[in-house]
């Protein structure tokens, strides 16, 4: 029996889909069987980020309405030897096409087959959100260091406290710009974690390569040298129960003259 994790945020554009794709891929790289479920019905794009958009035949609404079996609708990612699958969202339906019970029964069915079922939640806190959390054992709340994202994350934590999941939720702080955080222009990691009162699962640095790779349909975790990719790999390892220290934020590099100045200061 696997574990289902909903990836949610409240606010749009903080990186729910990117995080779903990357955490899923990272878990598959560790040899886990993973199914990604896109519940952003009407605005699906997890398939695009994974580079699987050309292979979709059936979607989740087809499954619910009996036009296809669940196994038929799953899209296999050929890069990962039978480890990574996607259940795509429908495009020509809206979020009411699915009920909470239907979403839940699909997730339960998938949990029998996979080690992890990652549910990509739509933005907002309406029906789509309720569907996404219905079948989840736990949640990863994605936020960025922006105040608007933290505010919405706070709202979502409140809603999750009202509808408690089996396990405690965790926090993922995404798109951290090291220099801004180090200089105090954004809330820092401790501040956000303390404010939301949710244990921290991991941080991911902001990097142009995240956008560049996802445009090519290749998750950033496949790039071994990239810091953002490492952030997601660390998160996957923590989900597997490993203890991985939090990555250090880079200090801004001092310029040539500043460094020379520092020699004299030391004396």
């Amino acid at each position: 029996m696997g574990k289902s994790i909903v990836i949610t945020s409240g606010k749009g554009g903080v990186g729910k889909t990117t995080s779903s794709a990357n955490i899923g891929t990272a878990l598959a790289l560790m040899g886990k069987r993973v199914c990604l479920v896109d519940l952003d019905i009407g605005l699906r794009n997890l398939d695009v980020v994974l580079g699987l958009d050309n292979r979709i035949i059936y979607d989740i609404v087809d499954v619910v309405e009996g036009r296809a079996k669940l196994a038929q609708a799953l899209v296999k990612d050929k890069r990962f030897d039978d480890l990574l699958y996607l259940l795509p969202a429908a495009q020509n339906a809206d979020k009411t096409a699915l009920t909470q019970d239907q979403a839940k029964s699909i997730v339960v069915e998938l949990k029998n087959e996979f080690d992890y079922v990652l549910i990509d939640c739509p933005a907002g806190i309406e029906q789509g959100f309720m569907n996404a959390i219905a079948g989840a054992d736990t949640a990863i709340i994605v936020t960025t260091p922006e105040i608007s994202a933290v505010r919405d994350a706070d709202r979502v934590v409140g809603l999750l406290e009202k509808n408690p999941l089996k396990e405690e939720s965790h926090l993922l702080i995404n798109r951290i710009r090291s220099h801004m955080m180090v200089e105090g222009d954004t809330m820092d990691i401790d501040e956000i974690t303390h404010h939301l009162g949710v244990p921290l699962l991991g941080i991911v640095l902001d990097d142009d390569a995240v956008i560049a790779t996802s445009n090519r349909g290749e998750p950033i975790v496949l790039e071994t040298q990239n810091a953002a990719g490492r952030g997601y790999r660390d998160i996957a390892r923590r989900l597997e129960g490993e203890t991985v220290p939090l990555m250090k934020l880079e200090q801004p590099k001092a310029g040539f003259w500043t460094r020379i100045g520092q020699w004299f200061k030391r004396g």
């Binding site: 505010r151 706070d154 409140g158 406290e161 009162g197």
Partner: peptide, 10 residues
């Protein structure tokens, strides 16, 4: 006595 966290929207 109230000691909970009242979050955004609550």
């Amino acid at each position: 006595l109230a000691s909970q966290t009242i979050r955004n929207g609550q």
